[in-house]
Simulated assay, not measured.
Amino acid sequence: MRKAFLKSSNEQLKKFAKIVNGDKPLRKISVDEKLKVGVDLGTSSIVLTVLDSKDRIVYGAYEYDHAVQDGIVVNFIESVNILRHLKEKTEKVLGRELKTACGAIPPKTGEKSAKVVANVIEETGLICTGIEDEPTAAAKFLSLSNGTVVDIGGGTTGISVFRDSKLIHVVDEATGGFHMTLVLGGRYKIKNDEAEKLKRNKDKESEVYAVIKPVVEKMAAIVQNMGSEIIDPVIVVGGATNFTEFTTTFSKDLKRKVYKPLYPQFVTPLGIAMFDN
């Protein structure tokens, strides 16, 4: 059963990875077709996703940013400018206007954070139809009714436990990909921008992972501390999980099988769009 839903999710993720930031949508759409839009204001990037009314992938775009910290918008103007650029690019590719969008925030970051995200979305001319929590959006995309989603972004580790499609427990800790960047910067005595580029360099992955592995182990410890509240399967998503050995470390520390979809950085953004009703 678990392999089946991951297979379906991975097929969708591969399609999205092929068209994201490209000059063509996955398929042509009519001028009056209902579209669903998701906006993920992440610590390291802002992602805009577009689905049709049946949650099938249409298009997506993203851009790296420094406007969000630990899941909180710290530079409103930069966030708006990046999102506006992504919106305009997407509208040009699709040949039509985007009208609504759903946003998301890390768990337990509060109404103030949700309001700021909504304001960013609406400042671009979109109508914000709602703000979801990020792991719930990931679970939506994965069609997960029972299990644990560990959403590791640039600034936070969000853990959501689901039973019978209901969210029963949420934990959020301020440890994420940015903390990996800080560790790399300290180890090599380089600036954060250089450390971020090094972290994303696939040719240096083995060397980089050896340095940032303690951060991954800390993330696993956050999950492990939840004890019996964790429900299998445990699925890790988010850009910070994009290391080959990530699930190996998590599985060893949790003493249970840990799953990771392909292109885990796009799971939550696609799930967010599914809530744009």
Rank of each mutant, 00 (worst) to 15 (best):
K7V: 00
S9N: 00
Q12N: 14
Q12S: 15
K15P: 01
F16K: 01
G22P: 10
D23C: 05
P25D: 11
L26F: 11
K28A: 09
D32P: 06
E33D: 15
K34T: 14
V37N: 03
G38C: 09
V39Y: 04
G42V: 04
G42R: 04
V47W: 01
L51N: 04
D52S: 12
D52N: 15
K54M: 09
R56L: 07
A61W: 00
Y62A: 05
E63Q: 12
Y64G: 09
Q69W: 11
D70G: 12
D70Q: 13
D70N: 13
V80D: 04
N81G: 00
N81E: 14
I82V: 14
L83C: 08
K87H: 08
K87A: 07
E88V: 05
K89S: 12
V93Q: 08
L98Y: 05
L98G: 01
K99V: 15
K99P: 04
T100P: 02
T100F: 10
C102D: 05
C102R: 05
C102S: 14
A104H: 01
P106R: 00
E111P: 02
A114R: 09
K115I: 01
K115N: 13
N119P: 01
E123D: 08
C128Q: 07
T129A: 02
D133V: 15
E134L: 11
T136I: 09
A138M: 04
A138V: 02
A138Q: 00
A138H: 00
F141Q: 00
L142F: 07
S143G: 10
T148M: 03
T148P: 05
V150G: 00
D151S: 11
D151V: 03
G154V: 08
G158L: 04
S160L: 08
V161F: 02
K166P: 09
K166G: 04
K166D: 14
D172F: 10
E173H: 15
A174S: 13
G176T: 00
G177W: 05
F178S: 06
H179I: 06
T181A: 09
V183W: 01
L184S: 03
I190Q: 02
I190R: 01
A195S: 13
A195G: 11
L198P: 07
S206T: 15
S206C: 08
E207V: 12
Y209R: 03
Y209S: 04
V211E: 06
V211R: 02
K213L: 12
K213D: 10
P214Q: 10
A220Q: 07
A220P: 13
A221D: 15
A221G: 13
Q224P: 01
Q224K: 14
M226V: 06
G227D: 13
G227A: 13
P233W: 03
P233L: 07
V237W: 03
G239I: 07
A240G: 02
A240Q: 02
N242A: 15
N242R: 12
T244F: 08
E245S: 14
F246I: 00
T249Q: 08
S251R: 09
D253R: 13
L254W: 08
K257C: 05
V258I: 13
Y259Q: 09
P261Q: 02
L262S: 09
P264Y: 02
F266G: 08
V267W: 00
L270F: 03
I272F: 06
D276Q: 10
N277M: 09
